[in-house]
Every structure is written in C-alpha cells, then in structure tokens.
Nucleic acid binder design. Structure first.
Lengths: 154, 154
DNA sequence: TTGCATTTGTATATCGATTGCATTAATGAG
DNA sequence: CTCATTAATGCAATCGATATACAAATGCAA
C-alpha cells in the first residue's frame, strides 16, 4: 500500500521518484533530502529554514543538515531560494510548468505587520522596461516581491 | 557663507532646516540626526545601516547611534525603511511628491549577484488585483522589489 | 564487499540587528 | 541664563539567522 497522500495541489511524488530526481541532479540520495523535498512539496507558500527545521526535527533531522540540504538542493536546481524582505531565506519546490518561456515565477507577497507570506497569481504584476530598468526585467528573468498589509492586518 | 552644497538632485536643505524638521517630527535635534539626514539626502539609492555607519563613523558617530537614529527617524516619518531581499535594512529619505495620492513609492531593484540596489521609475511596475491579492495591493499601498541580475552582472 | 568521496552531526563562528545601562546633552520652566 | 527633566548617546553585551570546521557516518561505484 502506498504512503498516505497528503493534500497537495500537485500530483504526488513517491519516495523512489524523489531519490531518482536527487541523483539526476548530481547529489546523493539521502533520507534527509527526501524528507526535505516531501516537506516542500506539501507547502503552499515559501517556507523558511526555521519552519522546515521545526517540522523536520521531530523526524530526527538536524537543523544544520536541513539548512545545508536546502542550499544544496537550491544549487542543484530542485529548489528555489528567495528573500521576501523579512530577513530570512524562504524555499519553494521548483515545479515545472510554473512559467513556460522564461524563468520567472509567480510574485510573492509578504505582510509587513504579521510576517505572513503568500504566492500571488502571475498576472497580478506587469513589468515595463524603460530608462534605468535592467535588461533582466524586460526578459522577465526576475523575482517580484510585494510588501504591504495582508487582508487580516489591513 | 553657507555650507558647500553637495550634488543632490533635490533642493538642498541646510542644517537649520533639518533641525526644524526633526523637531517638527517630535524628536530632539541632535548632531548625529542631522548628519544622518544629510547623508541620506545625498544618496541616490536606499542605503544600508552598514553603509551609513561606515560613512559616518569618521565623522565621530557611533554605529549604534546611527542605527537607532535611522529607526527613530523612520518611526517619525522622515525616513523609509525597506528590505530589498539582501537580508539588510535599507533607508531612504522620504521626499514629498514621490507619489501624490497613495503611500506607494517607486519600485526597487536588487541584483542577486553583486548586491547592487537601485531605484526604478514608478511606471515600470503595474499591479492588478484579483483572487488571492490583498486589498493593500489594489490600493497600491505597497512596496515593490524586483530581484534579478543588474546589467553589469547580466 | 570494499574504498572513498560525500553527507551528516556537533560545536562554534559570523553578521546584522537590538537591548541594558550608565553618562551626556537638548529643551522647556523659571 | 540656569537648572531640572527627560531624551539621546556610547559602550558592552545579546540575539537570531546563517554559515563553517572537523570528525564520524553513509551512499554508491567498482
């Protein structure tokens, strides 16, 4: 019997599949790495290292190992790392089909009051090039973060 | 004879005027505060506490004093504080006329490679409300940060 | 199964951000 | 102008997120 499927929006990916993906990325497949990826898969918003470490320490994972794996997986291209303006790194699983032609993904929102973060629909922000605007912006090879009050704090 | 005017884009503001502004904001006018504001006035992009402290320590200012004054001046409404995604606070002088109707100011750009930051024209980003987009966004009561490669690193 | 490079765990260092506390200085009352 | 009050300063110390050193453990290719 397969593992219980947690309520994710994406097609569930089994342990064996993750192990393959990790090795394809040039890394050794280890239990901590699989657990980190599963945790990220279940998330609906970018997770901080602290949040992930808190969730995974009960599973027997060391905080530093989680931290290093997040960076290794980021470097290997399986995970995306951003700073949404709250002085902490946040990590998201790179899901294919996020955006077809360019590297850009959906914008993020970060509440300046309570710190809550969320993902925004890709169409909610339109960029226009012009004087003083780097080429990477026109190419949409860019990450967009909005900071303000969330509806709960507004 | 007035002080030498430094090459700023905005009408120069003398020491006495700063002292008035500081007091109007409900704070005591002190030498460190005036120096911090003058330094911010000369800047063309958001400055980190470290940059400002480095610039002002030779003038005899303590790093912590600079730090606390930046926060005090922010709270008093003379300065704006943002995190552009490089894990450091950055400070800008609040210049009136930045935006007439709403609180929103120009977007900022931060290079993920070299860390350079810059200001972008206000029109370079257009926001659209929709499902999952907080009200503060529709109101444009928001700060926008773009992260990517600057032209030099591209 | 074995050898070796990679990963992990523990401890510790770093860096920006912040606070505690005694001293100093700005401002308002007289 | 002088003084008392209260805010601001300087210094030391702390904090939390991030990062590294090094020895022990483990994945994986031969």
């Amino acid at each position: 019997m397969p593992l219980a499927v947690n309520r994710t929006t994406k097609p569930p990916q089994g342990r064996a599949a993750w192990r393959d993906r990790i090795r394809q990325a040039g890394l050794r497949s280890t239990a901590p790495r699989v657990l980190v990826l599963e945790q990220l898969q279940a998330a609906v918003r970018p997770m901080s290292h602290g949040e992930l470490a808190d969730a995974l320490e009960p599973e027997g994972l060391n905080r530093v190992t989680v931290f290093r794996n997040l960076n290794d997986l980021t470097e290997a291209g399986l995970v995306e790392r951003t700073d949404l303006g709250d002085h902490t790194w946040r990590f998201e699983l790179k899901r294919e089909g996020d955006s077809k032609n360019h590297e850009s993904t959906h914008p993020h929102f970060s509440c300046t009051d309570c710190g809550a973060v969320s993902c925004l629909p890709e169409e909610s922000v339109a960029l226009k090039s012009g004087r003083g605007v780097p080429r990477s912006v026109s190419r949409r090879n860019i990450r967009v973060t909005l900071q303000g009050l969330c509806d709960a704090c507004d």
